[in-house]
Design a protein around this nucleic acid. Structure first.
Lengths: 234, 234
DNA sequence: GATTACACGTGAGCC
DNA sequence: TGGCTCACGTGTAAT
């Protein structure tokens, strides 16, 4: 019995008969798959109960399976210090912990990046952008003049990027701007817009009021299509 | 010998004497640590060579260590289907692969987010922002009028966000803008700026030219402090 | 009762 | 040499 054991001895560290790494191998077809050890029944030939001989081969398979799994584990972990069974498991644990930690780190980084970029990633989205530097509208007046011309007068307090904000809103609405004037004195920014509007553009115009106004808790008093005067109050 | 084995039988699935999860446990102080099985030497009392009795206890420790590791592994993996040794390892492998894949996914996501946000994260940085929607300056003229007033006329082709870009540049330079006019006809955007400048602001003014000009490969022809006319050519 | 999974002791190979 | 790690066969408890 011992003589024929020797040939597949020490396979753990060296040969490891089975080289399949593909982890998916649940049905184990290896009954007597390996080398040529003791055959089906009574490997010794004598002094063994026939009932236990089945147990022997079954146990062999079990061991083999476990070793196979362990080997597969070893192939997944990049840095194995020692080839011990115990060390393999230990290194795997360490590596897994490392992965888990890194996952948390990466997720945190993503949250960080996302929260930072959502404010900026859509430069046309006024409502998100404005949270940083809100436009404080003091007065707004819109007048429909003649055919397709609209004059919009906006007075707001002058802060950082107020002009940029306003430009963003205007451009995002696809208004057809003829001419714009920004004038600032003391701490106020006065804006005068001459717009060329078509019928399809009037929703944009309403949207403009909406955007600016909702962000400052003001409200539209009068916004009909023909003549639109918005006196914005606190 | 078998009789005293029974008491620490089947600990794998049920009790697992040692409950430490803290993976860091390389020096193993457990010589006879568990219950009260066979003491130091000759657990049987007879028919065992004294040389092998050391091997027995050493082997016991080895097995114990391995089981401990396996148990620790089990505690790290969240979803263990079966409590088999082999299944534990298999589930660990699957989980590790999952972690590795997710790590790659997250890293890709981070790269994606980063590459997207670096273009936008610094709204004051004109040179990065302009790469998306460059300002195509056709003509620029700066005139110093009287004491502290400067008139800047910029003509550029009208594209998406051109006005926003211009405003960004202007605001980033901390110029003291008295009044600005943007007028667009056909595909051109004409800008007229009235600035109030102090001595300390003249570098900003030069910077304005620099920014706009370098981004369009134009150059300043004349930029003295008293009178500054910049005719910008192709 | 057959199967499965386990811990055990043992002998052997390898530093 | 002694101290390890390993594979093996076996007995056993639970399914």
């Amino acid at each position: 019995m011992e003589d024929l054991d020797h040939e597949y001895k020490n396979y753990w560290e060296t040969t490891m008969f089975f080289q399949n790494q593909e982890l998916e191998f649940d049905s184990w077809p290896m009954e007597e798959a390996f080398s040529g050890s003791g055959e089906s029944s009574s490997p010794d030939g004598a002094a063994t109960s026939p009932a236990s001989s089945k147990n022997v081969v079954s146990e062999r398979n079990r061991r083999q399976k476990l070793n196979q799994r362990l080997f597969a584990l070893r192939s997944v972990v990049p840095n194995i210090s020692k080839l011990d069974k115990a060390s393999v498991i230990k290194d795997s644990i360490d590596y897994m912990q490392e992965l888990i930690d890194q996952e948390k780190t990466l997720e945190a980084e993503i949250r960080e990046l996302e929260s930072r970029s959502t404010l900026l990633e859509n430069p046309m989205d006024y409502s998100t952008r404005v949270q940083h530097y809100p436009i404080e509208v003091l007065e707004m007046k819109v007048t429909w003049m003649g055919e397709k011309t609209v004059v919009v007068c906006i007075t707001c307090s002058k802060k950082r990027e107020t002009m940029v904000q306003l430009c963003k809103v205007l451009e995002s609405l696809n208004l057809n701007i003829l001419t714009t004037n920004f004038s600032s004195f003391t701490s106020r920014l006065s804006t005068t817009l001459f717009l060329q509007v078509t019928l399809s553009l009037s929703p944009s115009l309403i949207s403009l009021f909406g955007n600016v106004i909702t962000s400052t808790n003001y409200k539209i008093l009068n916004a009909s299509r023909e003549y639109c005067t918005c006196l914005v109050l606190v």
